[in-house]
Each structure stands twice: as C-alpha cells, then as structure tokens.
C-alpha cells in the first residue's frame, strides 16, 4: 500500500511524457474535380452550359487560417499557416498539419485566400513570396484563387479565360471562410467542383475577372459553395 503513491506518480509521469511526445498529425487533401472526376490539367472537358469544350491550364489557390473547432469553439489554430495549392504540383494539395498534441475536434475551418492583415504586412517568403505569381503588382494584394484555361467560346485573346480572384479592402473583400465537419481520426478530403464554378460564369461575355470588384466577390461566393466534402456529378 505504501508504494501506491509512488506508482501513481510514475504512471502520471509516463502519461505526461507520452502526452508531450504524442504530437499529432492531421491530413487535409484537396481534390479539384471536373464532372466529379479528379481534374486533369490540359484535358478538354465538355461544359454543359456553354455546350462546348474547355481546358483548364492552371489552378492555384491559397488555404490559410486553419482552425480546429470543438462544439463551435476554437481548440487550435495552425500558426503562420499559409499554403499555396497548385494543381500542377499534386503534392501541394495535401496538407500535413502537425498538431502539438491530439485535440478533440468536430469541425475544421479555413480561409480560401489570404487575410487582410497578411495582405498589408510587406514582403514574405515561402508560399507568400510574390514570385509565386499570386500577388498583384499594380495594386497591392494577394490573388486568393486563380483559375485559367481556354475555351473556343471565349472572345478573348487566344480564347483564354482568366479568373484571378482577390481583394482585401472594402468594398471588395473576396476572402471566404469554409467550415467542414470532421473527426480527429479521419483525414479530411475537400473536393472542388470546378465545372460548377466555371458553369456559373458566362465564359463568352466574362472571360476575365482579374481585379477586386463586385464580380470577383460574387464569384468568390460561388467558389466557397463548391468546396465540398462529397462530390456528385
């Protein structure tokens, strides 16, 4: 009996060590899709609303401000987490999040884009380096979401469509926040229905949205709606 407190102490100590050592990992994967199939850059797709084909040549976007929530309360926020996801580099679309300890959470929340404070914080490296082509030179600000390609229906030079969606200043703030239900033991997969996003735009009349504007805001809302955790054709 006299040994019991000591045993308890040892057990507590072991659990504490285990707790410290047991940094946890959570994986978020993003799968851009077209007609419910993973996107292939450079492949011609038929888009129903234009009754013609289109090809996506590039698709990149930022994910930032990732928060874990439990019962609507933030339990952890990934510090300095700005990720540039690029369809041309599939490994960039899987985010391995290192958590200092295992958290219990039932929701995950993140921004599609870059928040306004980061937008006014000067030159930053890594994912935020302006050499990545996700920063507007003529008027300061990050491009949150960049989707480019071609379609014969576009009356633009080389039949290009270019959607560079961003803007951090009122009245044209394009940052969107999405929340998904999830569990700590199951990785989150987010599908992005690019056919639905492109299907919402009149590619003939609007092949380019490339500055902070009302059109950019409304497209950013459609983009947000098409980040989903299940995909249906």
């Amino acid at each position: 009996m006299t040994k019991q407190p000591l045993l308890v102490c040892i057990l507590v100590f072991c659990f504490a060590i285990a707790g410290f050592a047991q940094a946890s990992r959570f994986t978020m994967s993003f799968v851009p899709c077209f007609n419910a199939q993973p996107l292939q850059l450079g492949q011609a797709y038929l888009l129903a609303n234009i009754n013609d084909s289109l090809t996506v040549e590039g698709f990149r976007f930022y994910v930032s401000g990732i928060k874990l929530l439990n019962s609507n309360k933030v339990v952890y926020e990934i510090p300095d987490g700005h990720y540039l996801l690029d369809a041309a580099h599939p490994q960039s679309q899987t985010l391995q999040l290192n958590l200092p300890k295992p958290f219990i959470f039932d929701q995950i929340q993140f921004h599609i884009g870059i928040d306004s404070i980061t937008n006014v914080s000067g030159a930053m490296g890594g994912a935020l380096d302006p050499m990545n082509g996700m920063y507007w030179a003529w008027q300061s600000g990050f491009i949150n979401f960049k989707l480019e390609g071609t379609s014969p229906v576009c009356n633009s030079r080389n039949h290009k469509f270019q959607y560079h969606i961003g803007g951090y200043m009122p009245p044209f703030k394009a940052l969107q926040t999405v929340t998904f239900s999830c569990t700590n033991d199951q990785d989150l997969i987010v599908y992005i229905a690019l056919d639905k996003i492109l299907g919402s735009i009149d590619l003939r009349l609007e092949p380019e949205i490339m500055s902070p504007s009302a059109k950019a805001i409304s497209l950013s809302t459609i983009i947000k709606q098409n980040f989903t955790n299940n995909i249906q054709p």
Partner: peptide, 24 residues
C-alpha cells in the same frame, strides 16, 4: 495603390511601360 514599401518595386518592375518584367 501600393500598401507597403516592400511591395512597391513590383509595380514598376511589372508595368509594361516601365520595366515590363516579371518578378519570377
């Protein structure tokens, strides 16, 4: 149009009538 001194140089570098270049 530019919100920070660090980012200012990007504007003349990329302006087609100034330096016409790309930072990358």
């Amino acid at each position: 149009a530019i919100n920070h001194l660090d980012m200012q140089a990007l504007a003349p570098i990329s302006h087609p009538k100034e330096m016409g270049e790309d930072i990358a």
